[in-house]
């Protein structure tokens, strides 16, 4: 493998515009050299921003790094560029499964099956998913799929957990770190855990009751118009508050490493999803 990587690196150095970065990035990923793989994929993407395979590669590396939110964006982009990209469709299915949205997961796998009806890994993933087992993470099409036994069993998630996750399906940490409450501090969706893993959902919701009205009053008094959001930097983590509807409040909590600007973008997406979900209720 090391020889392969050396040979591929040399090829890429000779012709930086070539698509060999796809094979090199994948080889590094498989070897667990994720930082190297990431650099190769990003450089490739800079040169080939409209290449679906490049977004697919980048998404697979991000998935290995457990950065599911960005992986989702990359696979989503790959499908926009190439709607029949089975790697990206399988990737999206995997992420939907992870947040408990089985319907979306199956829909994406079915789409992939229509494109490649002879691909046994797709049937295998659908069967595993129906049995409640996490389908394997999507691999490059040329590579053999891992055996079913290698897949980790899915954590048991209650049906109510799935409903809550569906509010934010597709977003990083859809089951944790996102909380939607009504004006009285009642939880509508999402969940929060503190650093020790204890469930703090209800406590945080209670403290946040009335924040929306107070923020609105403050902005009005200052003549600033309607409030859009509130970002806060904590000693151990950052939070963002937004209001999908005048009464509801959305809280996004992430580790301190996530910059406030990026947190605001994530919150904006979650707000749109929460608004849609609230409108359907």
């Amino acid at each position: 493998m090391a020889d392969d990587i050396r040979a591929l690196s040399a090829q890429l150095a000779q012709d930086p515009q070539s698509l060999v970065f796809l094979r090199l990035g994948e080889a590094l990923r498989r070897k667990g050299q994720l930082e190297g793989a990431l650099r190769v994929a990003m450089n490739g993407l800079e040169r080939h921003p409209h290449l679906a395979d490049a977004h697919d590669l980048y998404a697979r590396i991000l998935t290995d790094k457990h950065d599911y939110e960005r992986a989702f964006d990359e696979w989503d982009m790959a499908v926009r560029i190439a709607p029949h990209h089975t790697g990206a469709l399988k990737g999206l299915a995997f992420l939907y499964f992870k947040v408990g949205d089985l319907a979306q997961a199956e829909a994406h796998l079915e789409q992939a099956r229509k494109v490649e009806p002879d691909d046994p890994s797709i049937d295998q993933a659908i069967a595993m998913m129906r049995k409640g087992v996490t389908p394997p993470t999507p691999e490059q099409r040329a590579a053999p799929s891992p055996p079913a036994a290698a897949a980790a069993p899915a954590a048991a998630v209650s049906s109510s957990g799935f409903d809550e996750a569906r509010v934010f399906a597709g977003l990083e940490g859809a089951n944790e770190g996102l909380l939607l409450i009504d004006g009285a501090g009642r939880v509508l969706g999402g969940a929060l855990r503190d650093g020790s893993g204890a469930d703090v959902t209800d406590r945080v919701a209670a403290y946040l009751a009335g924040v929306s009205q107070e923020a609105a009053r403050t902005a009005k008094l200052l003549g600033l118009g309607a409030w859009n959001g509130l970002s806060a930097e904590g000693q151990h983590g950052n939070v963002h508050l937004a209001h999908p509807t005048p009464d509801a409040l959305l809280l996004v909590v992430r580790e301190r490493g996530m910059p406030l600007g990026r947190l605001a973008i994530l919150a904006q997406r979650a707000t749109t999803m929460a608004r849609r979900w609230l409108e359907k209720q």
């Binding site: 929060l192 503190d194 703090v200 945080v204 509130l230 904590g234 000693q235 151990h236 983590g237 939070v239």
Partner: peptide, 18 residues
């Protein structure tokens, strides 16, 4: 709310309006 959520006390916050 931030203390309960485990993020520690806030060191900076920012209310954005129109």
């Amino acid at each position: 709310a931030m203390e309960a959520a485990g993020t520690g006390t806030s060191v900076f916050w920012h209310l954005q309006a129109e």
